[in-house]
Simulated assay, not measured.
Amino acid sequence: MELGEPECTGGCCGFLSVVVQRLGDIVQWSDWEVPYAPAALPPEFHFDAGQYDAELDHVEADRWWQVHT
Rank of each mutant, 00 (worst) to 15 (best):
P35K: 12
G24L: 04
G4V: 07
S17E: 15
T69F: 08
L16M: 07
L23T: 00
R22C: 02
S17F: 05
V67R: 13
A39V: 05
R63K: 14
A37V: 04
Y36I: 05
V34D: 05
L3D: 03
M1N: 12
E44V: 10
Y36C: 10
Y36G: 10
A49N: 02
H46L: 10
E33L: 14
C8Y: 12
S17R: 15
V34N: 09
W64R: 13
I26D: 11
R63G: 08
G24R: 09
L56N: 01
H46G: 06
L16Y: 06
E60C: 03
G4D: 11
D62Y: 14
Y52E: 09
G14H: 04
F15W: 00
D48C: 09
Y52D: 06
L56I: 11
L56E: 08
V34P: 11
I26M: 07
A39M: 08
L3T: 04
G14F: 07
Q51A: 15
P6I: 00
P43G: 11
A37F: 04
D31L: 05
P38D: 13
V20D: 01
P6V: 03
Q66N: 11
D31E: 15
W65T: 00
Q66M: 06
T69W: 05
W65V: 02
S17N: 12
P42G: 05
W64D: 14
D48M: 08
A49G: 06
D53R: 03
G24C: 01
C12H: 05
E44M: 10
F47I: 09
W32V: 08
M1F: 12
C12Q: 12
A40L: 03
V67A: 14
A40D: 10
D25Y: 04
A49Q: 02
A39P: 00
A49V: 13
D48P: 06
V67E: 13
A61M: 09
A37S: 15
Q51R: 15
V59S: 05
D31Y: 10
C13T: 06
T9H: 01
Q21M: 11
W32K: 09
L23V: 14
F45N: 09
G14I: 07
D53P: 08
L56P: 03
T69L: 10
T9Q: 05
C13F: 06
Q51L: 13
V27G: 04
R63D: 04
Q21E: 15
W65M: 02
V67T: 13
G11V: 00
Y52G: 03
V59W: 14
V67N: 05
S17W: 12
C13G: 04
G14Q: 07
Q21P: 09
F15Q: 08
P6W: 11
P42W: 04
S30M: 13
D48Q: 08
A61V: 11
S30D: 10
S17V: 07
R22W: 07
L23S: 09
W64G: 02
E5M: 03
A39S: 06
L41R: 08
H68Q: 10
L41S: 07
H68D: 00
F47D: 04
G11R: 03
